[in-house]
């Protein structure tokens, strides 16, 4: 092996195609991103073309092979980028022009390797199963996010109300939160039936790795919750990333409109959309208004709808 990254196999030789798929499924079940590289075209002769597949794990370790050598090292490096960007790519090598890349598998021809990312599902932890929660959860599910509903009221958090949810948690907030571990591909949306609960959930949410945190409420309510958390010892830099007022600034009013604004903000977060800079607001804007936050914000509280 020309690369110095760790491998889980002592030797990639003898890894069957099925082993590569099994390893891929294992990574997916563990919730880790990985990428699959396949030789799709080779000018020259390649032995065992049926098994010319390689799984690249998040840490750069591999299962299977695309021929070894410098070309494989390059594929591994590209695969790690592709796990981050989420965009599949074809990597082409002209081995005639770059004999150093030749592993001996293809003699002086060209080699095309297709690398596709397998990313863990995006999960949404939705706190509050009320009107806004119900519609937001439904839209989120339609978009393809895996949704978990959390509420302390069993009548608002049950499998009949959210039949397609990955999980529904009914019970005391703190008890439920202790069992949840959002990762960087998770999003947290807070729309409970009380400011006190929102504050309790937010205190927990900012300590997690969740990639997106949004909390419903007017500017006045957000100020109140923020001061409360700061007084209780939550560092301000942790609070600054919280999206509040939540959702893109499109003047949403009804639960359905709010859900659209919130999901649009989440999509912008997931996809790196430009709207996140121009039409999304965070708690830090309370001190330093962003272009989006300078637009006059209605101060009516949407809590009645939550």
């Amino acid at each position: 092996m020309a690369h110095d990254r760790p491998t889980h196999e002592p030797s990639a030789k003898g890894t069957s195609l099925m082993d590569v798929f099994k390893e891929l499924i294992k990574e997916q079940e563990e919730g880790r991103p990985c990428a699959l590289a396949t030789i799709v075209n080779a000018q020259g002769s390649i032995p065992a073309s049926n098994t010319a597949k390689m799984l690249v794990r998040e840490d750069g370790s591999i299962a299977g092979t695309v021929g070894g050598g410098l070309a494989e090292g390059k594929v591994i490096a590209e695969a790690r980028e592709i796990m981050k960007t989420g965009t599949p790519r074809m990597i082409s090598f002209n081995l005639h022009d770059n004999p150093l890349l030749d592993s001996g598998m293809v003699c002086g021809g060209s080699l095309d390797v297709f690398v596709e990312p397998y990313l863990p599902a995006i999960s949404l932890y939705l706190f509050g199963g009320g009107h806004v929660g119900l519609v937001t959860a439904e839209f989120a599910h339609r978009i393809g996010y895996e949704v978990e509903i959390i509420d302390d009221r069993p009548e608002f958090a049950n499998a009949e109300r959210f039949p397609w949810a990955r999980k529904v948690h009914a019970g005391p907030w703190s008890k439920t939160m202790a069992g949840l571990a959002p990762n960087s591909r998770s999003m947290v949306f807070i729309a409970t039936h009380g400011h006190v609960f929102d504050a309790e959930v937010l205190t927990w949410a900012v300590t997690t790795s969740a990639g997106y945190i949004g909390m419903i409420g007017s500017k006045r309510k957000i100020q109140t919750v923020r001061s409360k958390l700061l007084t209780a010892g939550t560092p301000s830099d942790r609070l600054n990333r919280v999206h509040a007022p939540v959702g893109l600034d499109i003047g949403a009013d009804t639960p359905e409109e709010i859900a659209v604004a919130v999901l649009a903000e989440m999509i912008a977060h997931v996809r790196g959309g430009r709207a996140l800079k121009t039409a999304s607001r965070t708690i830090s804007d309370l001190d330093h208004p962003s272009p989006a936050a300078t637009i006059e914000d209605g101060d009516e509280d949407k809590r009645a709808l939550a």
């Binding site: 396949t38 799709v40 965009t87 599949p88 790519r89 074809m90 297709f114 596709e116 990312p117």
Partner: peptide
């Protein structure tokens, strides 16, 4: 069957 390369406004993206 997997789309491995395509053009700008193609109906289905690579992957």
């Amino acid at each position: 069957a997997t789309v491995v390369s395509t053009w700008g406004s193609s109906p289905r993206p690579a992957g």
